[in-house]
Design a protein around this nucleic acid. Structure first.
Lengths: 247, 247
DNA sequence: CGCGAACTTGAGGCGTGTCAACCCCTGTGG
DNA sequence: CCACAGGGGTTGACACGCCTCAAGTTCGCG
């Protein structure tokens, strides 16, 4: 591709730019060159959107026209059944993409709810398709992210299909800690942004079982629970619970 | 895009072509124009591969370089744990894509096993990325397929996380029947290509529970089981089992 | 400071796993 | 043609992990 194409666009009031975002090494534009980054600035993300705690970013059935990259805050996605049963299908933090569920049918398949006051970068999907056709590395990144989400799904299936309560909780905590670590936070001191209810829904367990499992892990000396503050005192021991399950 | 670009390539010994495949309305090239189809012929799929019953199309950890479209036969994908536990994460039939799990890390994340003698179309991934950059509708289709797979994952989470054994089996059968119907087969007479063990692994149940659930559904007059032949005698009744679960 | 939501813990029941026996079907070799 | 072996499937008895229901405490937010 001709580098001349990548003439950067400079504007005085250019606030929403990937090139100056501290999440650019975690988010969609990973691996783009400086030139490519400047080319997509002002085209990939044209606006940001605030979502208050408890607010919906989108609901199942809503028309789809954009993807969203979490900039600040924390989200859950869930499938709600008509009888009130609700399955949390994932938790999303800074740099992660929301909305991929809507690409197929052009309607969102799940609800996306902010667990705390949050802000997302709005990525118009039409524009994204345009850009991925022009910038190969952006296309690659999008595909990698979607592939990663597919694999994540299969791992959750393994969790739900063949792990016991304590194993599920351990796997959940380790995954959370790992993702937080990648964002520069402590891997041992985790602040949960979701309720036990939401953890239970995600893990296919009831609130009571989640609570009891926390207590049991604490009794085993693997972690220390104080409300939503979890201190993982024995990461290896926790991981050891998953020996024979992990692939 | 300039239509002149789509000069069709004609070759005497051109055997593997999407444009003349009876699955083209179900498979990756859905929605492509005649011109586009002829343009991608001989570039998208360069070869086919046979996989005998029980054979691996690929294994977790194998280097990734191609996607595969099921042409004939039937596959399962599974995540195997080190202790022998195995989670079947999906079943794939004609026109469905295998290998998307490998795009992210360039290594396959699951095993893909043929449940009967099968043939797949090999889609070199490098070539596909090239083509999706050129042909917008092909890019759109690939994205839709990946999105669909993500949503499928979330629906399996709902199944595994909050449905009872009989509900899971009912959902599984209805899904299978639906996909078979889309391929011109009967929606009421289903021949299972997988063992009870594999169904159980997929549904997060033991063989015994699967067997018992079949018996119970039969006792309720919803279907008739004869080995791997399932006759769905009351599709609405079966679907009714899922009232309040379906979204 | 007070109220409701969130969380923990206990007691008991139920659905599914576990273990075992048995049948059926298929393929194989005598 | 039959005997046999082995994998797949069904069914029963029992066990156990998680769910349900209930009570009580703590936390968080207005």
């Amino acid at each position: 591709m001709d580098p001349a194409v990548f003439k950067p666009l400079h504007h005085a009031n250019c606030r929403v730019m990937c090139s100056s975002c501290n999440l650019r090494e975690i988010c969609l534009p990973v691996g783009l060159t400086r030139l490519e980054l400047e080319y997509i600035d002002r085209r990939l993300v044209t606006s940001r959107r605030k979502v208050p705690r408890g607010g919906y970013l989108y609901r199942a059935g809503d028309p789809f026209d954009s993807l969203f990259a979490v900039w600040t805050g924390f989200f859950k996605t869930c499938l709600s059944a008509t009888d009130g049963r609700e399955q949390v299908t994932g938790f999303q933090m800074g740099g992660e993409l929301l909305g991929l569920d809507g690409i197929d049918t052009r309607r969102h398949a799940v609800d996306a709810v902010a667990l705390e006051d949050s802000q997302v970068c709005v990525i118009r999907y039409e524009e994204l398709e345009e850009l991925t056709g022009e910038v190969g590395s952006l296309q690659q990144q999008l595909h990698r992210i979607m592939s990663r989400e597919i694999v994540r799904g299969q791992n959750v299936m393994l969790l739900l299909g063949s792990m016991h309560a304590e194993e599920r909780l351990a796997a959940f905590l380790l995954n959370l800690a790992h993702r937080l670590q990648a964002r520069g936070f402590s891997a041992t001191l985790v602040t949960l942004r979701m309720t036990r209810e939401e953890i239970g829904s995600f893990l296919g367990l009831t609130v009571e079982t989640v609570s009891r499992s926390f207590s049991k892990l604490q009794a085993q000396g693997l972690l220390f629970v104080s409300n939503r503050q979890i201190r993982i005192t024995d990461p290896l021991g926790l991981r050891h619970l998953l020996d024979g399950v992990e692939t």
